[in-house]
């Protein structure tokens, strides 16, 4: 198989890579670019651990070919904190203990970030629907939902 040359934008940086035609974006991120924050859970689009944002939409990177990223803009968990300063969602996940083993966490954070960008004041039901494609097998969902609600409040500038 001939490798494909891809030019894309990842977390605001221009990135070029070579990938195989049948290689997923998830494999490119982890194995070629060293961006190991995006996790592989099921590899078939069911668990959301590999969630990334592509041109503003949250997608499972295991269901995107690396070649499809050509000319697109990709956001991964590595772009979420600004230097040493965590994103409010990241901080609230820690404060609310909304994680245990951590495998699902980057996916939840990316999906929640996309939600709050589209809907700064979601209802609990909207949060649960939006995150229904992210599976956690350790801690359950209540702490995650509370963390998202708390981060949303802070991001809207309301007192905690």
């Amino acid at each position: 198989m001939t490798a494909i040359a891809v030019s894309t934008t990842i977390n605001g940086d221009d990135v070029e890579y070579l990938c195989q035609p049948d290689e997923t974006l998830l494999d490119v991120l982890r194995n070629r670019l060293g961006l190991m924050g995006t996790k592989e859970g099921c590899g078939t689009g069911d668990c959301g651990a590999c969630s990334t944002i592509m041109d503003g939409r949250v997608v499972c990177s295991c269901l995107v070919l690396g070649a499809e990223a050509q000319g697109r803009s990709i956001e991964t968990i590595e772009g979420m904190a600004q230097g040493a300063e965590l994103h409010p969602l990241q901080r609230k996940f820690i404060e609310h203990a909304a994680l245990q083993c951590g495998i699902c966490t980057p996916g939840f954070l990316i999906a929640a970030k996309a939600l709050l960008e589209e809907k700064p004041d979601p209802t609990e039901e909207e949060i649960r629907f939006w995150l229904a494609g992210n599976l956690c097998r350790c801690t359950g969902y209540d702490k995650i939902v509370r963390a998202v609600q708390d981060a949303a409040r802070e991001m809207r500038g309301e007192a905690a």
């Binding site: 689009g45 939409r57 499972c60």
Partner: peptide, 9 residues
């Protein structure tokens, strides 16, 4: 059809 992530594609 599917989750938020699936809806995006």
């Amino acid at each position: 059809i599917g989750s938020t992530q699936i809806q995006g594609r």
